[in-house]
Computed example of a mutant assay.
Amino acid sequence: MEKDVVKKIAQLVRAGATLTSYTCPVCGTVLVRLKTGELYCANCERTVVLVKTEEEAQQAVEVVQLREVRRIVFDKILQLGREIEKLSAPEMIEHLRSMSLLLDIYERLSRIHTEASKQQAKSF
């Protein structure tokens, strides 16, 4: 294991993460469990989901994809928010309608993501 990776792992542990007996399926680095409960590979710099069945693998993929869609929606809400002060009243109203719709979608995605994450956590 490279010194930089060991340093990253040490930083994560000091921040409250715990070492696990699991290793990354991609690079073989020891995984740490973050405070959020997620397993993380300091070498690959990404979360890792352990699964036992194909069904669990599909659920894990869906959780990751939902998280990405939710991030995209959030970024769009922020973009619209930055543009508001430059707009005329009619344009602002249209932007606010779009923001309202996106906020509703974001809230629904958040609820779905939370439920899916809970179900995933129960299986371990």
Rank of each mutant, 00 (worst) to 15 (best):
D75T: 12
I93R: 13
L39P: 05
M99V: 15
A15R: 09
T20L: 11
G81D: 06
S110C: 03
K7H: 10
Q59P: 01
K35E: 15
A57D: 10
S98G: 01
L31Y: 05
V64H: 02
F124K: 15
R33C: 05
L34C: 04
E55G: 01
C41F: 09
S98T: 08
Q11P: 00
T20G: 13
T23H: 14
E38R: 14
L80C: 03
A15T: 04
K3M: 07
V48H: 01
R14W: 02
A89T: 05
E62R: 11
E83W: 11
A60E: 06
I112A: 10
E107C: 06
K86P: 02
C41D: 06
E2S: 11
R46V: 02
V51P: 01
M92S: 12
I112G: 02
T20R: 08
G28I: 00
K7F: 09
T114G: 00
L50W: 11
A42F: 03
L31W: 05
S88H: 03
K118G: 05
C27A: 04
D4C: 04
A10R: 14
I93M: 08
A89Y: 11
S110R: 08
N43W: 11
E91D: 12
L109M: 09
K35A: 15
A10P: 00
T29S: 10
E2I: 03
E2Q: 13
R108A: 10
S21D: 14
D104F: 04
M92W: 02
L78P: 00
L102Y: 09
V6P: 00
V73A: 07
T53P: 09
M92V: 10
L12Y: 01
I93H: 07
T23I: 13
L39R: 08
R14F: 03
Q11I: 09
L78M: 00
R70P: 03
L103W: 07
A15C: 05
Q11V: 06
Q11E: 12
V32A: 04
V64N: 05
V5F: 10
V63L: 11
Q120D: 06
S98Q: 14
H113C: 02
R108L: 12
D75S: 15
C44D: 12
T53F: 08
Y106K: 07
H113P: 01
A15F: 06
R97I: 05
E54N: 04
L80P: 00
A60I: 05
E107T: 09
A121G: 00
S21P: 01
